[in-house]
Amino acid sequence: MKNYFLLAFLFATQLLLAQSKDKKIFLDSLWNQTNEGNHKYYRITTDYYLNKKGYQITDFYLNGQIKNQGSYEDKDGNGRIGQHKEYYSSGRLKTEKNYAADNRPSGPFNSFYENGNKEIEGEYVKIKTDVVEEHSILKVISYWDENGTQRIIEGNGTMIEKSEKETSRGKLVNGFKEGTWIGTNPSKKVQFVDKYESGIFIAGVSKDSTNTEFGYLEINKMPAFKTGLMDFYKYVGKNFNKPDTETIKGKLITEFTIGTEGQIQDVKIIKGLRKDLDIEAIRLIMSTDNSWNPGEYRGIKTEIKNTFPIVIDIKVN
């Protein structure tokens, strides 16, 4: 009996040690880290606390079904490696995509409807638009509608493209978007018309709920610190008031929204380090109010939520 309990104890200890190598975090609808209870997804990074080359990361829906699964270069989810799969909340496969060494999609791509029918069969190819800029573009070989009727054959035909928020329709020539694509985003009450040449987005015009028109050269434009991102990093490093009488090392994560006029809104701490340092981080982020150019969606200024980590490393001899 003693041996039985000893073996059981050793097995339980080994199991706990194995579990402690993984890390679980909670994510909101925009994939920003948040607190448990406010989350829409959660993420488990296998062997997070081990130093290794490449990490397996799996994202889950609230119902416990896998949403995304694949390997990354680092433990924080930077740099996709190899094949990645996305699933519906029902557990059915949604997409499978491959990533090259430059972290861009490359090679075979397949997508499926939630009813299990095939949607797209294609491949990601690299296209240079000039000497410097290179794009990874999806070349569609075959496309079927939700009822199983093939609409794209050998890269040619008309296609309806759907994402979580947008639906658009247009023509494919030799596998690439060509000419005018018309679409809507019901959640933002936006209609748009985009122009493509050989799969490359050229320009677009959108209309908001008031029928006001906006021209744009970028579909999504992220907020930008007015004097440049490096200046923002320098500002944080220079103006963060740190105690100089004790050794502190760690990372806190802030979350804040940049409004349509570049104002700072809804600053909060997602991962705290210590109360006084958390308060200082909030003060510092708020001090950059109106120092940002707002983000845009199809030429329309829009609020965008951001997360920003601050690393504290104070050494006192």
Rank of each mutant, 00 (worst) to 15 (best):
S187V: 11
N78C: 00
N98V: 09
E261A: 09
I282P: 00
K2R: 14
R80E: 08
E255A: 12
L7P: 06
F192M: 05
R169K: 08
T149A: 13
M222I: 06
D278K: 01
P309A: 05
S209E: 14
D194R: 03
F192N: 06
G199P: 03
G77S: 01
G215T: 11
K171E: 15
I270Q: 15
E303I: 03
T13C: 12
N110Q: 13
F176R: 12
K128M: 05
N38S: 11
Y87M: 04
I81W: 07
G148R: 02
T95C: 13
S29H: 12
L93D: 10
L15M: 09
T129D: 04
I44H: 07
K195I: 14
N78G: 04
K53E: 10
F308L: 14
I310P: 07
N293Y: 12
N241D: 13
Q191N: 14
L252W: 09
I127R: 07
G155K: 03
K23G: 04
E86G: 05
E86W: 10
D130N: 11
I182M: 08
I279C: 00
K242T: 15
K221W: 05
G54D: 07
W181T: 07
S71Y: 14
F308E: 12
T184M: 01
S168D: 08
Q150N: 06
S168V: 01
Y235A: 02
T167D: 01
N317F: 13
L277C: 01
K165I: 13
F308C: 09
